[in-house]
Nucleic acid binder design. Structure first.
Length: 914
RNA sequence: AGGCCCGUAGCUCAGUUGGUUAGAGCGCUACCUUGACACGGUAGAGGUCUGGGGUUCGAGUCCCCACGGGCCUACCA
């Protein structure tokens, strides 16, 4: 069965096939009745507006690696996909989309607009899920969810009504964050702070009935139009005499009281503060204490309104400019000082947020937060209903924020989202909150009801995600089986937005934590350290990169950099290196297939080589015993499996990735395959068969080990293995076990010894610049240790091949010394390559000197330490013993080095003499 | 303002409870197109772990200070 197999791995040619296969076969559909412990994970729902960006790629890679790993190990596994309706984002996108077609969404009206968004969602909103399918994420697509679906709406209403009835949700008038571009109120979290260079304007307010002026300092002169007082500190001697008097508000010619309030910082500015209750949170509170009027001087879109007198109609920043000019003209502007302050920006539109008085819906948080704090604080491994947050420093962040949590503004002035289930009667504005549209007012019975036009913050519905997606409030089979979920993987940038709220809501409504562990992954940054962002044009399109390097390479690359707590900077170098790895795997398999044809021609049957029984017994013996290198390979494999399992269990993706990389490339390709090459073609039938059996068993296990990281490549290659015949997918497992019979410390030690000898011989060869790399030369080996001698003797063939030797002669110390040629020594052995051309004695001496200097230093430091009484009395026995053993070795080595140096000096002086 | 993180080879980063001569990938140098792979092979060069102080028998690892970089939270006008 001759195989056509491409010389280089071409991911583009195999990925679409398997991606489609996995979806069509519904291979990853969860079955609540399946055996095994449960592993369930819900996707952090990406925005429907979105397309896959590099951050998703990292997140989904981590989720998919863990999901596939668990599935292969026999867990009852669910990876639930879905998308978020993303209120503000989506509304902005569709408004713009309509505007591009000359349609003003206001004119469409709410109902029609919502229809258009749904239509847009059906047509364009599926992009990200299509991409996820294309990159082979092992989701259960039959359980895909959308945060604004009718089922989700029912859950949202249920939650809203209950929280209202429990008095968590309330409606109130307060000072809120207003985005003049998105035209909605924002929660505190949606306001991003940024330090900006600004000014502190000192403005003189004349005091009525005196010739004095009170100078106030402000960063926002335009808000003075809404001033209703000036405040000073009650104990400020400079101003005590003015308290109770009135100031004449410049430009507006309005008399406003001069009040005393503790909130004033005497040190800051002039110690006198203008009070604008309608446009500043502090002033709002001060206004409440002093019963001051709240004069809103702006419109929704941050232009000055009728309250702003002659400035009405101006944009807030134009107004600022004009006001400053006018004040200057009137001689009331005392000075302008530079001043930097953190200003609030709308997370979405990047507009400066305007603090504003408004009536909104809020959710009380303190009480909801308490059990969510407890769940994290009381975490212990295995303790029910507690949550582990990884990495640890995020846990501290979470706790800090939760301890200082403030009420959550949940209403939004948008059309796209879950509409508030609250109705007002026309007559009295009584509030009726209900699960179903009520027929009459719950208070007065009026039948003229109007529903609140607002929708809920997007995060309100995503906060219910882990249980809303599984059927809650019904106790469905899915809910009973898969809730609480096992794990949440998300970015630390939405720890508060999302994770914290899920924990609070989950505990409150289900009595259980929504997930046992939160793993917060890194952000992918650009070379300059910024977060990669499509809007800034600094992002890399993962789909294009997948196309270029292969999805598996991308996954492997991200995994190998995903050390917990460390942000990732992606580069083409790293992607290329991961692609090279994929190619290496491809070619290792290719080597097997190409040579298998030859072997089959000699009459071998595949079943004989790769039946399940053969694999169950691997490694297979030849001539009654397991060849050393085979024992070694499986020992390395077992160690790697243990390491990968341990690393993945602790979210140390980079360690797991580096472990499989090292095993496959370093151990399997560089040493094992090279070692057994001749055996595969051996005339000794039994030996060849054993080699083939072990090769197939090892590759089979290696592919399974690699599968969570590189699903496409491994699926493709695995299907070409003889043992895969008739099987459906490598993805269904099993994951290789680190068999106890594979563990073999002796084999590990022995092969390491042989590798050391090979490396020493190769290094000498490399020093002979004249020596053709392919020319076989003679070498001598000497050791004082009989076991080592036996080992080398038994593996002489392999050694000769690896070091390109005509013969490796094992000689006594005296015979060794009698020969000429370049030498390398360790404490355990000496090797000499016999070659007519001498090495560059000068270079050799330099190397030896440097090495012996290093050794001398190491020896001196060890002797010092071992000579120290305190060290001897306090250090653990193990450390002392280890140090002593190492010291003895180093001394032998040093002695050899120096003898060699002496020889070289002798040679050169002799040469000089003749 | 408070809190957190980072500063290790030319570059990007690992380095789990402090313990034997600090690792990887890329890049670099030399040699090798050997029948799996040049997206390859072999050998090598290269860091005393930002600086200073301290704890300790022993510190890249713990503590303090300084410098440099980043992030988060926050109603100082």
């Amino acid at each position: 069965m001759a195989r056509e197999i491409a010389k280089a791995y071409q991911p583009q040619q195999i990925e679409p096939h398997w991606a489609e296969f996995w979806v069509k076969q519904a291979l990853f559909k969860a079955d609540p009745n399946a055996p095994g412990p449960v592993f369930s994970i819900v996707i952090p729902p990406p925005n429907v507006t979105g397309s896959l960006h590099i951050g998703h790629m990292l997140e989904h890679t981590e989720i998919d690696i863990l999901t596939r790993w668990h599935r292969m190990r026999g867990f009852n596994t669910l990876y639930l996909p879905g998308t978020d309706h993303a209120g503000i984002s989506t509304q902005r996108v569709v408004v713009k989309y309509l505007a591009d077609q000359g349609i003003d969404y206001h004119k469409l009206g709410r109902e029609e607009f919502e229809k258009r968004v749904w239509k847009w969602k059906e047509e364009a909103g599926g992009q990200i899920t299509q991409q996820m399918k294309g990159i082979g994420e092992s989701c259960d697509w039959s359980r895909e969810r959308f945060t604004l679906s009718p089922e989700m709406s029912r859950t949202v209403r249920e939650v809203f009504v209950r929280l209202y009835e429990e008095k968590f949700i309330y409606r109130a008038t307060g000072l809120v964050n207003w985005c003049p571009v998105c035209l909605t109120v924002l929660s505190d979290l949606e306001v991003a702070h940024e330090e900006r260079q600004g000014h502190l304007w000192h403005i003189q307010y004349p005091v009525v009935g005196t010739k004095e002026c009170l100078t106030v300092a402000t960063t926002r002169p335009e808000t003075m139009l809404g001033d209703t007082a000036v405040a000073v500190h009650p104990e400020d001697e400079r101003y005590k005499h003015l308290v109770g008097k009135k100031a004449l508000l410049p430009l507006m010619k309005r008399e406003i009281p001069i009040i005393a309030d503790e909130m004033v910082d005497r040190e800051f500015g002039t110690g006198a503060v203008k009070i604008t209750p309608a446009h500043d949170p502090n002033d709002f509170e001060t206004g409440k204490r002093h019963q001051l009027a709240e004069i809103d001087v702006m419109t929704d879109d941050a232009h000055m309104n009728a309250n702003a007198g002659e400035y009405a109609g101006l944009d807030r920043f134009e107004a600022r400019k004009k006001i400053v000019e006018d004040l200057q003209a009137q001689g009331l502007l005392l000075k302008i000082a530079d001043h930097t302050s953190a200003i609030g920006l709308c997370e979405r539109s990047k507009t400066i947020v305007e603090p504003r008085v408004s009536t909104q819906w809020f959710c009380k948080m303190k009480e909801l937060a308490a059990p969510a704090i407890k769940a994290v604080e009381e975490y212990e491994p295995g303790k029910a209903n507690t949550i582990l947050i990884v990495p640890d420093n995020r846990r501290t962040e979470y706790l800090n924020w939760m301890h200082n949590i403030r009420d959550w503004t949940i209403s939004r002035q948008l059309w796209w989202g879950h509409r508030l289930p609250a109705w007002y009667c026309k007559e009295h504005q009584h509030i009726t909150v209900a699960r179903e549209t009520p027929a009459k007012c719950g208070t007065c019975g009026s039948t003229t009801l109007e529903q609140d036009p607002d929708v809920l913050d997007t995060w309100f519905s995503s906060g219910l995600w882990p249980f809303s997606t599984l059927g809650w409030p019904e106790k469905t089979v899915d809910y009973r089986t898969y809730y609480p979920t096992t794990l949440l993987i998300t970015g630390y940038d939405i720890l508060f937005f999302w994770a914290a709220r899920m924990i609070m809501m989950g505990i409150h409504f289900t009595g259980q934590v929504p997930f046992a562990t939160v793993y917060l992954h890194a952000l992918v940054r650009t070379g300059t350290g910024e977060k990669m962002s499509k809007s800034k044009g600094t992002g890399r399109d993962p789909v294009a990169l997948n196309q270029q390097y292969g999805t598996d390479a991308m996954r492997f690359c991200l995994a190998s950099m995903a050390a917990p707590g460390t942000d990732i900077i992606l580069s083409d170098d790293k992607l290329a290196s991961a692609r090279n790895f994929a190619n290496k795997i491809w070619n290792a398999a290719r080597f097997l297939f190409v040579n298998l044809d030859k072997f089959e021609q000699s009459g071998a049957r595949l079943e004989e080589l790769a039946s399940p029984e053969v694999r169950a017994k691997a490694p297979c013996a030849a001539g009654g015993k397991i060849p050393l290198v085979d024992a070694w390979l499986f020992a390395r494999l077992a160690a790697t499996i243990d390491m990968v399992n341990d690393a993945l269990a602790n979210y140390r993706f980079h360690e797991a990735a580096q472990g499989v990389y090292q095993f496959f490339w370093g151990d399997f390709c560089d040493w094992y395959i090279e070692w057994v090459k001749p055996e595969l073609q051996s005339a000794d039938r039994e030996r060849a068969t054993a080699a083939w059996k072990n090769l197939f068993a090892a590759l089979d296990a290696a592919l399974r080990l690699l599968h969570p990281f590189m699903p496409f490549l491994t699926e493709e290659l695995w299907h070409q293995l003889p043992q895969a015949a008739g099987a459906n997918s490598i993805a269904l497992g099993p994951f290789p076990e680190a068999e106890s019979r594979w563990k073999n410390a002796d084999a590990l030690r022995d092969v390491a010894q042989i590798q050391e000898v090979v490396t020493a011989l190769r290094a000498i060869r490399a020093e002979f610049r004249q020596l053709d790399a392919r020319k076989k030369v003679e070498a001598a080996f000497s050791t004082a240790d009989r076991a080592t001698e036996g080992l080398i003797r038994a593996n002489r063939e392999a050694l000769e091949r690896f070091a390109v030797l005509s013969e490796l002669r094992i000689v006594s110390k005296d015979n060794f010394d009698a020969q000429s040629g370049a030498v390398r020594s360790t404490a355990a052995f000496d090797v000499r390559v016999v070659y007519a051309e001498t090495v560059d004695a000068g270079a050799e001496k330099t190397r030896l000197r440097r090495e012996s200097e290093g050794l001398q230093k190491a020896i001196a430091s060890k002797e010092r330490q071992l000579g120290d009484k305190t060290f001897r009395s306090r250090a653990p026995e193990k450390i002392i013993k280890g140090l002593e053993a190492m010291l003895a070795q180093q001394k032998i080595e040093l002695e050899k080095l120096q003898r060699r140096l002496g020889d070289l000096d002798g040679d050169s002086s002799q040469a000089a003499g003749t």
